[in-house]
């Protein structure tokens, strides 16, 4: 599939081609923070960012999601969200797009597919944005990713300066651009330029953290004293999980609506004591030690054992935002050095 060239001054026009037919989600600047939101016009989009504060996982897995609802006196359930328009998620960084693949495996595994997630995923096209300037807190390359990676995307934009290279990666992506006749075909020189930028971006990253054998190593470390030290400063909040593109844990609640009941799922995290507290009052993960161990084990041992890859993409959000600077890269190093 040929790549295309999109002038930066045509970006608004490009996005506006989709608005109406699709619901479009893109990075927008809200006050001090850049985050994904639904846009009504291409001009709201801000692609001049390093990475968004939060990953756009909520487009597929909202923090609060009504699964179904019923009303008193009426028969049957009202299921949410089936009549929605298709979506486009534009401006997603390679780490976050790769995280979607990690989500996909989980939400489609086992006996029961997770339809609320999978339906949204199926009906959303992902337009990624390669990362020319990875941050110092980024470590995607240590975990098998790359600042110019394409996993999880249908189209990928590469910032070439005055224009974007539009790489077409899937049929879904092809379908998006096939009718936009005014896009110029990319030339060899554009592709070379993108390749150079990809190389520069990889080279600009900090040296990789060694993760060779990390999964196997953790097999024997459940009772290792290393966890005693690691969790000490953790305050047990949900910043790392709620900003994490690969954390999917949730809780399910029934809420009284006044006229009936709605079943809601909300984000939850293994860092909260309530996450494993049982009805009897017993909690198998009574302290921060067990909860921190769970987070690390899940990403670097349980997930790879189930699906063959680490469950962390190295986006660095938890590194940047942890209130006490509990740096997951240091945790990996500590585990590796045991």
């Amino acid at each position: 599939m040929n790549s295309k060239i999109l002038g930066k001054n045509q970006l608004t026009k490009f996005i506006d081609e989709f608005i109406g037919e699709y619901r479009v989600f893109a990075p927008v600047k809200k006050g001090k923070i850049i985050g994904f939101d639904e846009i009504a016009s291409g001009k709201e989009t801000c692609l001049d960012f390093q990475n968004t504060k939060q990953p756009p996982k909520s487009v597929f897995f909202p923090q609060t999601e009504v699964l179904f609802e019923y009303k008193k006196g009426e028969k049957g359930l009202e299921k949410a969200g089936s009549g929605d328009r298709d979506k486009i998620l534009l401006g997603m960084r390679p780490c976050d797009a790769r995280a979607l693949v990690i989500f996909d495996r989980f939400f489609s595994s086992g006996e029961h597919e997770d339809l609320p997630y999978l339906q949204k995923r199926e009906r959303t096209a992902v337009v990624g944005l390669a990362c020319n300037h990875p941050l110092n807190t980024c470590f995607c390359t240590s975990l098998g990713g790359s600042p110019f990676g394409s996993e999880g995307m249908d189209l990928k934009l590469v910032d070439l300066g005055d224009e974007y290279l539009v790489e077409i990666l899937t049929n879904k992506g092809e379908k998006l651009v096939e009718d936009i006749k005014w896009l110029r075909d990319a030339e060899e020189s554009d592709l070379n330029r993108a390749r150079d930028l990809a190389e520069d971006a990889e080279n600009a990253m900090k040296p990789k953290i060694s993760t060779d054998g990390l999964c196997d190593k953790l097999d024997g470390m459940f009772d290792d004293p290393v966890w005693e030290g690691i969790h000490q400063k953790c305050i047990g909040c949900g910043v790392c999980s709620f900003l994490c593109p690969t954390c999917w844990c949730f809780d399910v609640l029934d809420e009284d609506t006044g006229t009936g009941v709605k079943r809601v799922r909300i984000w939850d995290t293994c860092q909260f004591p309530l996450f494993t507290k049982q009805g009897s009052g017993f909690n198998p993960r009574p302290s921060g030690k067990e909860r921190m161990r769970q987070r690390i084990m899940h990403k670097f041992n349980y997930y790879p054992k189930d699906f063959g890859e680490f469950g962390c993409v190295g986006c660095g959000r938890c590194v940047r935002e942890c209130p006490v600077n509990l740096d997951i890269r240091e945790v990996i190093r500590a585990v590796m050095s045991v």
């Binding site: 305050i235 909040c237 949900g238 910043v239 709620f242 909300i266 984000w267 209130p323």
Partner: peptide, 26 residues
């Protein structure tokens, strides 16, 4: 409106020492 219920505010606060916070009661 932008709160994500991560409870970082509560958990860093030395005054928030309740064994069970009112929002966690079930």
């Amino acid at each position: 409106g932008s709160c994500i219920r991560c409870y970082a505010c509560r958990n860093v606060c030395p005054m928030c020492y309740c064994k069970e916070c009112f929002v966690d009661e079930t």
